[in-house]
Amino acid sequence: MTDLLGRRAMVTGAGSGIGRACAVALARGGADVIVQDINGETATAVVAEISDAGGKAEALACDVADEARLASAIRRAGPVTILVNNAGVPGYNAPLEAIDREAYDRMMNTHVWGAFAATRMVLPGMKETRWGRIINIASNRGQVGFERSSHYSAAKAALIALAKSWARELAPDGILVNAIAPGVVRTAMTLSYGEAAVEEEAQLNLLKRWAAPEEIAAWVLVLAGPTGDFMTGQLICPNGGDPIVGI
């Protein structure tokens, strides 16, 4: 695949899971990739994986909400025209009474303000070239809610609404914005709830299985590449049928 040759991408939260799979897939598509993660060791490991496969990548170890660090990295690397807002933290099945202000702020700061911060930093380059692709990684829980971890569901719902709003705002600049709402994906984050919990959630969908991170990354390639040139303001739902919602 060479559809993305000459493009520079940034994937947030790319040290593991869906973010790692997206970074690897974009590099295989020809893009130079900034691998952002709060964990410098995992970011560096993903860069090594991409480099060993013949791709180009660099690590950016910082909090995704740190606009100054993001801006510095982009100035050094050059304009970013593909952004995957993936960085997030788990909710750990917390009931409403257990979600204090610190937990709430951490959730919103990472998922929502992190997406704001990263998007704000890449917009100048996208507007200058009049070409950009922004993809927010949301969740099926942002569509239908969840009886625990309501702050997680709210943060993911916000990412969906941001994609729709940004699509309207940025279309005149040639920037397309979409969101992806996966169902259960087998990652280190989901496995933090335990193997049994992942398998239990997998049984809620029609296919009775979890997705691999690479299955979600494949949709990122669709939206970032030429096959996604007529798609903006949309929500893609690779969820195994959990849920099926109306149009």
Rank of each mutant, 00 (worst) to 15 (best):
M121F: 00
V122R: 06
P124N: 10
K127V: 00
R130Q: 15
I134F: 00
N136H: 14
N136D: 12
N136L: 09
I137S: 07
I137V: 13
I137A: 12
N140S: 15
R141S: 15
G142E: 11
G142Q: 06
V144L: 07
G145R: 01
G145Q: 05
F146K: 10
E147H: 13
E147M: 00
E147S: 08
E147N: 14
R148T: 11
R148M: 12
R148A: 11
R148F: 12
S149N: 09
S149E: 09
S149M: 02
S149A: 12
S150C: 10
S150N: 07
S150F: 03
S150L: 15
H151Y: 01
H151N: 07
H151K: 07
Y152E: 08
Y152M: 02
S153E: 05
S153Q: 09
S153Y: 04
A154I: 06
A155Q: 05
K156I: 01
K156S: 12
K156P: 04
A157R: 10
L159W: 03
I160W: 10
I160T: 01
I160N: 04
A161C: 06
L162V: 06
K164Y: 08
K164G: 07
K164V: 14
K164H: 10
S165A: 15
W166N: 10
A167M: 03
A167H: 07
A167P: 13
R168T: 15
E169H: 04
E169A: 14
L170A: 01
L170R: 03
L170C: 00
L170D: 02
L170V: 01
A171I: 04
P172M: 00
P172S: 05
P172R: 04
D173K: 02
D173H: 08
G174C: 01
G174Y: 06
G174L: 04
I175M: 01
L176C: 03
L176S: 01
V177P: 06
N178D: 09
N178A: 00
N178W: 08
N178R: 02
N178E: 11
N178S: 08
A179N: 07
A179S: 13
I180S: 04
P182E: 07
G183R: 05
G183S: 02
G183W: 10
V185T: 09
R186A: 09
R186C: 14
R186H: 12
T187Y: 11
T187P: 15
